[in-house]
Amino acid sequence: IRLYEREDYRGQMIEFTEDCSCLQDRFRFNEIHSLNVLEGSWVLYELSNYRGRQYLLMPGDYRRYQDWGATNARVGSLRRV
């Protein structure tokens, strides 16, 4: 999964292949505005340590956080399923 700091895949990008319990420890931002799921399925959590609202993401492109059903861009952790 590739996470981007801004909409439309702009700004700083980070790629994950494994679970991350605290996004801010690995990426200086806690807001993700766009992403690409390259393979497999992922769950994004609004808070760190896999807490808060959850969003199940299938392979595909998500140009804005609204595309995955979120009401804001906050992402605290993520897990591959």
Score class of each variant (00 low, 15 high):
Ile1Ala: 15
Leu3Cys: 10
Tyr4Gln: 00
Tyr4Trp: 03
Tyr4Pro: 01
Glu5Pro: 11
Arg6Asn: 15
Arg6Asp: 03
Glu7Ala: 09
Asp8Gly: 09
Asp8Glu: 10
Asp8Met: 09
Tyr9Asn: 15
Tyr9Ser: 15
Tyr9Phe: 14
Arg10Val: 09
Arg10Glu: 12
Arg10Asp: 04
Gly11Asp: 13
Gly11Val: 00
Gly11Phe: 00
Gly11Cys: 04
Gly11Trp: 00
Gln12His: 11
Met13Lys: 13
Ile14Gln: 08
Ile14Asn: 12
Glu15Pro: 11
Phe16Gln: 11
Phe16Ala: 05
Thr17Leu: 09
Glu18Tyr: 05
Asp19Gly: 12
Asp19His: 08
Asp19Leu: 03
Cys20Arg: 13
Cys20Gln: 09
Ser21Cys: 07
Ser21Pro: 02
Ser21Trp: 05
Ser21Thr: 07
Cys22Val: 06
Cys22Gly: 10
Leu23Asn: 07
Leu23Tyr: 15
Leu23Trp: 02
Gln24Trp: 06
Gln24Ser: 09
Gln24Cys: 08
Gln24Phe: 06
Asp25Lys: 14
Arg26Ile: 02
Arg26Leu: 08
Phe27Leu: 05
Phe27Met: 04
Phe27Gly: 05
Arg28Ala: 09
Phe29Trp: 11
Asn30Met: 07
Asn30Ala: 11
Asn30Tyr: 05
Glu31Arg: 10
Ile32Ala: 05
Ile32Asn: 05
His33Arg: 09
His33Ser: 14
Ser34Pro: 00
Ser34Met: 01
Leu35Phe: 15
Asn36Asp: 07
Val37Asn: 12
Val37Ile: 13
Val37Ser: 15
Leu38Trp: 15
Leu38Phe: 06
Leu38Arg: 11
Glu39Lys: 06
Gly40Phe: 08
Gly40Thr: 07
Gly40Ile: 05
Gly40Glu: 13
Gly40Cys: 07
Gly40Lys: 03
Ser41Arg: 11
Ser41Leu: 02
Ser41Trp: 03
Trp42Cys: 02
Val43Cys: 15
Leu44Ala: 10
Leu44Asn: 00
Tyr45Val: 00
Glu46Arg: 02
Glu46Asp: 07
Leu47Arg: 12
Ser48His: 01
Asn49Cys: 04
Asn49Leu: 12
Asn49Ser: 05
Asn49Pro: 03
Tyr50Arg: 03
Gly52Tyr: 01
Gly52His: 01
Tyr55Thr: 15
Tyr55Pro: 00
Tyr55Met: 07
Pro59Gly: 13
Asp61Leu: 05
Asp61Val: 06
Tyr62Gln: 02
Tyr62Gly: 02
Tyr62Met: 14
Arg63Met: 14
Arg63Ala: 11
Arg64Gln: 08
Arg64Pro: 01
Tyr65Lys: 05
Tyr65Ala: 05
Tyr65Asp: 12
Gln66Lys: 15
Gln66Trp: 10
Gln66Arg: 06
Trp68His: 12
Trp68Leu: 15
Ala70Ser: 08
Thr71Pro: 07
Thr71Gln: 04
Arg74Gly: 09
Arg74Cys: 10
Val75Cys: 06
Ser77Gly: 02
Leu78His: 01
Arg79Leu: 05
